[in-house]
Simulated assay, not measured.
Amino acid sequence: MFDVVALGELLIDFTPYGVSEQGNILFERNPGGAPANVAVALAKLKNKTAFIGMVGNDEFGTFLKNVLEDNGVNTDGLKFNKEVNTTLAFVHLNNGDRNFSFYRNPGADMMISTEDIDFNIIKNSKIFHFGSLSLTDEPSKSAALAAVKYAKDNGIVISYDPNLRPPLWKSLEHAKEMITLGLNFADILKVSEEELEFITDTKDLKEGTDILFKKGIKLIFVTLGEKGCFYRYEGGFGLVEAYKVNAIDTTGAGDAFLGAVLHKISDKSLKQMTDMKKEEMEEIIKFANKAGALATTKKGAIPAMVTMEEIMRGI
């Protein structure tokens, strides 16, 4: 039995790493991809996790498979594509914040089909986690929807992260349509402040999360960077402040946060999650805020995921 099975993109993040003698920016090869980051974040916290996705049959793909296995993530659901290369993303940093240039036209993560999915892996999980980038194109869209529908039909808790990456969508209208489609399955939702506004057309955290809560989403977490996390669930809503750190790279911070949340609730039923007292919910968010903050003090995504020892050591 897996605590969490994650489906989606596994890719190479090329992260800035200083300059050459000629003054050119150097890039370091780092493993990434939001759902894969979450799987590793949980594995680093000693949860049993598995990843379902596709990489190219190239050196990058082999590297990524090895990284997942070295971090304790089951890769039985990871497939190799012989025709399409592993997806690449170049990370551009500005005062610790980042944006991306993607090489994904197509990329191997988009090419996973329903026939590639081992549904037994999903059946043997407590939580199924996916992201919206699997919904940008076919055949990954149909594969992701088949997987999440299967998980839902089998009573598995659904975790969803609608990553908004405008360059990867045909249009913002298409992005909103597909992201909203994913919301229909979600029990647990992690969104950024920007994504909440994009989905609900309001900047007001109370109003936006209320709109989503009324859609039937049970646990909602809005990550606010250095301002912390706003949450809403059956027991109420509130803001939990962030920890102050010297952030050098925010790539993967939200995934470290979500991994820490899922770690704390993976042994609970959905009813037990929704029945939690506010004090317990806020303690979970404090723990997750610490994981997210610590991840920003390291470069890269998967390499920045933190251990329990690091979280307990504090900030």
Rank of each mutant, 00 (worst) to 15 (best):
F102M: 12
Y103W: 13
Y103F: 15
Y103P: 01
R104G: 02
R104L: 04
R104K: 14
P106E: 04
P106G: 05
P106F: 02
P106L: 01
G107M: 00
A108K: 06
A108G: 07
D109Q: 11
D109G: 11
D109C: 12
D109V: 08
D109I: 06
D109M: 11
M110D: 14
M111E: 15
T114R: 04
T114I: 12
T114H: 00
T114F: 02
T114M: 10
T114W: 03
E115I: 02
D116F: 01
I117D: 02
D118Q: 10
F119D: 11
F119P: 06
F119Y: 14
F119R: 09
N120Q: 14
I121F: 07
I121A: 08
I121M: 12
I122N: 05
I122S: 02
I122F: 13
I122P: 14
K123D: 14
K123P: 04
K123F: 13
K123N: 14
N124A: 08
N124P: 10
N124L: 07
N124F: 09
N124G: 10
S125N: 09
S125F: 04
S125P: 11
S125D: 02
S125M: 03
K126P: 11
K126L: 08
K126R: 15
I127D: 04
F128H: 03
F128E: 02
H129M: 07
H129D: 06
H129Y: 09
H129E: 01
F130G: 05
F130K: 05
F130N: 07
F130E: 12
F130C: 11
G131N: 08
G131P: 04
G131L: 03
S132H: 09
S132E: 03
S132F: 07
S132I: 05
L133V: 13
L133E: 09
L133F: 07
L133R: 01
S134R: 11
L135W: 11
L135D: 08
L135S: 07
T136E: 06
D137P: 04
D137I: 01
E138A: 09
E138W: 07
P139Q: 14
P139Y: 13
S140G: 08
S140F: 00
K141S: 12
K141A: 12
K141W: 09
S142Y: 06
S142H: 08
S142F: 08
S142P: 07
S142A: 12
A143H: 01
A144I: 05
A144L: 09
L145R: 05
L145D: 09
A146I: 01
A146C: 03
A147E: 05
K149Q: 14
K149I: 11
K149D: 15
Y150M: 00
A151Y: 03
A151T: 02
A151I: 02
A151L: 04
K152A: 11
K152Q: 15
D153T: 10
D153M: 12
D153Q: 15
N154F: 05
N154E: 02
N154A: 02
N154G: 04
G155H: 06
I156R: 02
I156P: 03
I156K: 05
